[in-house]
């Protein structure tokens, strides 16, 4: 049961409280309070980060900085107003529901480090770095997330913000498979970014959610495709590679066999939707 509730306003105060109480940090609480109620988390201390004097959303040196306490709704408005990274809008609008997006935060999604985290997938695709305080460490997201729910954080540290690349002239595709429009935790998801040069690949990034202990992305495969002609055979090759690389589990949402098949099918579906101009 929650016995202590704190509202630190400075980085040092927050850090000291975290060390002293071992309490859980929260901003929107859309995940933490569900877990506390379900008995999955038992803590007597929660630390509300919303009173921290932190920076605002900003664009600097072709990077988008998202501080803690920024909600999905605020991020969407910012992305739209600045016309950057349209894939983020496609991903964020599928997260939770309006009520969740009005409270939930991208930084919270990274902290939870779920392989089904939709914003985690976005952050992998956009080569995100996680910025920690008070240390001011900057760690690539794929190094920061160690496994399901496991992150690299010292006792005194907390996630201060994330920094994403801003990409121009990329085609993109995002889809998540679930059972309802709102509030779905994906059975499997795909995010794809392609930059073309004369019908050939200049840069490609492909990531899958919910089919491995962390988001599945493979930079070696991506690199090996630079200069290749974009056609269905190439995507069949990719579908096969990721079918083999994926290592999903069976859980309440779906079986591992079904998830593996989704990896294959979603890869081809992304191609068909982007290049054959038939929406399926």
């Amino acid at each position: 049961m929650i016995k202590n509730y704190f509202r630190p306003s400075t980085i040092d105060e927050l850090s000291e409280l975290k060390i002293k109480t071992n309490g859980y940090l929260f901003s929107g609480g859309t995940d933490l309070f569900v877990k506390i109620r379900a008995g999955a988390i038992n803590t007597d201390t929660v630390i509300d980060t919303k009173y921290l004097e932190n920076e605002e959303l900003k664009i600097e040196n072709k990077k988008l900085f998202i501080p803690l306490n920024t909600t999905y709704t605020e991020l969407r408005k910012f992305i739209k107003a600045n016309q950057i990274n349209p894939i983020i809008e496609n991903i964020v609008k599928t997260i939770g529901s309006p009520m969740i997006r009005n409270r939930g935060t991208p930084v919270g999604n990274i902290a939870n480090a779920s392989p089904a985290g939709d914003f985690v997938l976005a952050s992998y695709l956009l080569n995100a770095s996680v910025i920690l305080k008070p240390s001011s460490k900057k760690i690539p997201v794929e190094e920061f997330i160690k496994g399901p729910g496991k992150i690299e954080l010292e006792k005194e540290e907390f996630i201060y913000g994330i920094e994403l690349e801003i990409l121009d002239d990329y085609k993109f595709y995002f889809e998540k498979v679930g059972r309802r429009n709102a509030m779905i935790i994906s059975i499997a998801s795909i995010g794809l970014l392609i930059k073309e040069d004369n019908e050939k690949i200049k840069d490609i990034r492909i990531a899958f959610g919910s089919v491995a202990p962390t988001i599945l992305r493979n930079k070696e495969i991506e690199k090996s495709l630079i200069g290749e002609k974009i056609d269905k055979n190439l995507f069949k090759y990719l579908a096969n590679e990721f079918f083999n690389l994926s290592s999903p589990i069976t859980d309440v949402r779906a079986s591992k066999e079904y998830r593996k098949q989704l990896v294959y099918n979603l890869t081809l579906k992304a191609y068909i939707n982007l290049y054959e101009k038939v929406v399926i």
């Binding site: 929107g28 609480g29 859309t30 929660v46 709704t73 529901s97 009520m99 409270r103 509030m183």
Partner: peptide
């Protein structure tokens, strides 16, 4: 637990779940 929306209230003009809020 935030699935049904029956507890929705407006806080500073935004709709949120009152069940997932202290």
């Amino acid at each position: 637990e935030g699935e049904c929306g029956a507890c929705t209230i407006l806080v500073n003009g935004k709709n949120v779940h009152s069940c997932l809020m202290l």
